[in-house]
C-alpha cells in the first residue's frame, strides 16, 4: 500500500501492513496486559495477523447494568450479547431509553456494569468486575470515541487535537504529530492541519474527530450517533470513512444510531430493546 489514502471500494481486509506501521515507528505500547492464557495479550497494532477474530475486536456476554438499588432500581441492561470482528462496523439501534448510552458508557469504561463479561481487542476488561485498575489508560490506549458533535479541543490546532492522544500516552511530540498528519491525510483533512477547530466546517470537524479516535490505533471505536447532525450525503460520507478506517486499521467499530439514512449501510445490526440485544443481518449497502 503506497501512501495513506484509500479509495472507497478498496478492500484491505487482508492487508499485511497497515500504513502506520512503516519502519516500526508506529508501534505504540499497550497498557499492562492482564490477559489469561485463554486470552493471550494482544500485541500492539498487529491487527488481523496472528490474533483470531474470536478474541480480538469486541466480545460482550451477558452484560447487565442496574442503576440504583431497592425500589428505585432501574435495570438499564438486562442481557447484552455482542460480537464485533476487527475491521467490522456494526450498528446498534434502539428506541430512546432502550439502554444504548448505558451500553456505550460500560464499554467506554466510564460506568461499571453490574455483571457479565467484556473483551476489547483480545483483552478481557470486565468479568463481573474490572480486570484493570487503570480505566483511564484503558480508555486512552484501547478505545477511540466519536461523538454526535466533534467536541474538538478549541485551543489546540487540528494536528494537536489528534496528536494529543499519543502525547497523553507518552509519545514524543514529533512522533505524535507525524502520526496525526498521516491520519489527517488518510481522512483528507491534512490541508487543514494547522487550522483551529473553529475554522473548520462541520464535516471537516467530524473527520478530525475520527482521526483523533484513531490516533492511538485502538482495537475498538465507539461512535455515539456520529451522523445525527449531518445531511444525508455527509452522513454517508462519515459512514464511508468509518468503514475505510475499520478495514485499514483492523478496528472493530460500534455505531450507535437511529439515523434511517445510514442504517442500510450496516452488514450487521444489533437491535436493543428494554436492555436486551437482538442480532440481525443488515442490507450492507455499498457506500
Amino acid at each position: 500500500m503506497n501512501g495513506t489514502k484509500l479509495s472507497a471500494n478498496q478492500s484491505n481486509r487482508d492487508a499485511e501492513t497497515p500504513p502506520l506501521e512503516k519502519g516500526g515507528s508506529g508501534d505504540f505500547p499497550t497498557p499492562a496486559d492482564s490477559g489469561t492464557p485463554a486470552n493471550p495479550p494482544r500485541p500492539p497494532f498487529e491487527k488481523g495477523g496472528s490474533t483470531s477474530t474470536e478474541d480480538a475486536g469486541i466480545l460482550i456476554e451477558g452484560l447487565r447494568k442496574r442503576y440504583g438499588a431497592g425500589d428505585t432500581a432501574v435495570d438499564a441492561l438486562k442481557d447484552v450479547n455482542m460480537r464485533v470482528a476487527p475491521g467490522e462496523v456494526v450498528g446498534l439501534v434502539g428506541p430512546s431509553g432502550s439502554g444504548k448510552s448505558t451500553l456505550l458508557k460500560c464499554l467506554g469504561a466510564v460506568i461499571e456494569p453490574s455483571a457479565g463479561r467484556m473483551t476489547l481487542g483480545g483483552e478481557t476488561i470486565y468479568d463481573n468486575a474490572w480486570k484493570t485498575r487503570d480505566l483511564r489508560a484503558l480508555r486512552r490506549d484501547r478505545i477511540g470515541f466519536v461523538f454526535q458533535a466533534p467536541y474538538l479541543i478549541p485551543f489546540l490546532d487540528v494536528t494537536d487535537n489528534v496528536a494529543l492522544l499519543p502525547m497523553l500516552s507518552g509519545r514524543p511530540n514529533g512522533e505524535a504529530r507525524r502520526r496525526a498528519v498521516e491520519l489527517l491525510e488518510a481522512l483528507d483533512v491534512a490541508h487543514r492541519a494547522k487550522a483551529q477547530p473553529s475554522q473548520l466546517s462541520g464535516g471537516e470537524q467530524q473527520r478530525v474527530s475520527i482521526a483523533r479516535a484513531l490516533a492511538n490505533q485502538p482495537p475498538v471505536i465507539l461512535a455515539d450517533e456520529p451522523t445525527a447532525p449531518l445531511d444525508s450525503e455527509r452522513a454517508l460520507g462519515v459512514m464511508r470513512i468509518l468503514n475505510q478506517m475499520a478495514s485499514q486499521y483492523r478496528t472493530a467499530i460500534i455505531v450507535v444510531t437511529h439515523d434511517e439514512k445510514i442504517i442500510p449501510t450496516f452488514k450487521r445490526i444489533y437491535h436493543i430493546r428494554d436492555g436486551r440485544t437482538y442480532e440481525e443481518a443488515g442490507e450492507g449497502r455499498a457506500l
Binding site: 480508555r139 492522544l165 497523553l168
Partner: peptide, 16 residues
C-alpha cells in the same frame, strides 16, 4: 466543562 469531560474520557489525568 464539555471539553474537560472529553479530555477526561480520552484519558487525560485529573492531575493534568
Amino acid at each position: 466543562i464539555r471539553e474537560i469531560a472529553v479530555l477526561k474520557l480520552i484519558g487525560t489525568k485529573s492531575r493534568t
